[in-house]
């Protein structure tokens, strides 16, 4: 399943489409500490975080995750959106808490 299909299935807001039609979402990683994400997230994972700044996008690119989902309805600022668009990162947003979102994706992807 692509990140965009996942967004449509779970009614997530698509903030930046990026390469979300081309990637395959094949895991879930939940964390707000960027170094832990870089050290431990697997390429292709869906990364769920409340950390909304442009460094989040830089880390998403480095860790090569398939998309970033901002959970808990946290607001995404313009700089972050701009950076996501520039870097071709699929950026999504949800009002769900991180755990509930992660569980819903886990079930949807039948992991």
């Amino acid at each position: 399943m692509t990140p965009i299909q996942l967004a449509e299935a779970l009614d997530l807001k698509i903030i930046s489409r990026g390469d979300g039609d081309e990637r395959t979402a094949d895991g879930v990683f939940c964390c707000d500490l960027l170094s832990i994400v870089m050290g431990k997230a697997k390429a292709g994972a869906v990364w769920i975080t409340v950390m909304c700044n442009i460094n989040t996008i830089a880390v998403a690119v480095l860790a090569d995750v398939s998309c970033v989902i901002i959970s808990e309805g946290y607001a995404v600022d313009e700089d972050m959106v701009k950076k996501a668009e520039e870097q071709g990162v699929c950026l999504l947003q949800s009002s769900l808490p991180t755990f509930e979102l992660g569980l819903a994706i886990h079930n949807l992807l039948q992991l």
Partner: peptide
């Protein structure tokens, strides 16, 4: 508060 400083940098 920006998500850094987890003490993982050098170990990564």
């Amino acid at each position: 508060s920006l998500g850094f400083g987890a003490g993982m940098g050098l170990s990564n």
